[in-house]
Every structure is written in C-alpha cells, then in structure tokens.
Computed example of a mutant assay.
Amino acid sequence: MTDAAECKPEITEHEQDEAERDDAHLDDIEEGAGCTEIWEHLAEQRDE
C-alpha cells in the first residue's frame, strides 16, 4: 500500500513557470501571514 502523501507527480516546466507567475504578487508576504495581512498587502499594491 502506498502513502498518498509520498506521491509527488512530476511538474512540467510550463506548469512551474505558470505557478511562479500566479503567486508572484505574494512574494513580499511573510510566511505564516494570515488573511488580514494578505488582504492588506493586496490592497496596498492596488493603491499603487
């Protein structure tokens, strides 16, 4: 029996590039930030 948590499907280069672009706007947010911090960060970027 295999453990589903150990299953790591291969990610294509195109998928990796797309994934990096999709969350690039969150690069300045500290790891572990909550919804409020993320919302504030996005609102500040929108104002600029």
Rank of each mutant, 00 (worst) to 15 (best):
Q16K: 15
E18N: 04
T36M: 09
E15G: 07
D27N: 01
L26M: 04
A4P: 15
E40F: 01
E10W: 10
I38Y: 05
E15W: 01
L26E: 03
E30M: 02
R46A: 14
L26V: 03
I29C: 04
D23M: 10
P9L: 08
C35F: 12
A19G: 14
H41L: 04
G34R: 04
E44V: 15
G34E: 05
H14I: 13
G32L: 03
D22R: 14
E10H: 10
D17S: 07
E37N: 06
D28V: 03
R46T: 08
Q16D: 15
D22P: 01
L42D: 02
A19S: 15
D17H: 11
A24L: 06
K8Q: 14
A5Q: 12
E15V: 00
H41P: 03
Q16V: 08
E40D: 15
L26H: 00
W39V: 13
A4L: 12
A5M: 09
I38L: 05
D22C: 11
E30Y: 03
T2K: 06
C35D: 12
H25F: 08
D23S: 11
M1N: 10
I29Q: 03
C35H: 12
R46G: 06
C35V: 09
A19P: 03
D47Y: 05
P9N: 09
L42A: 13
E40C: 07
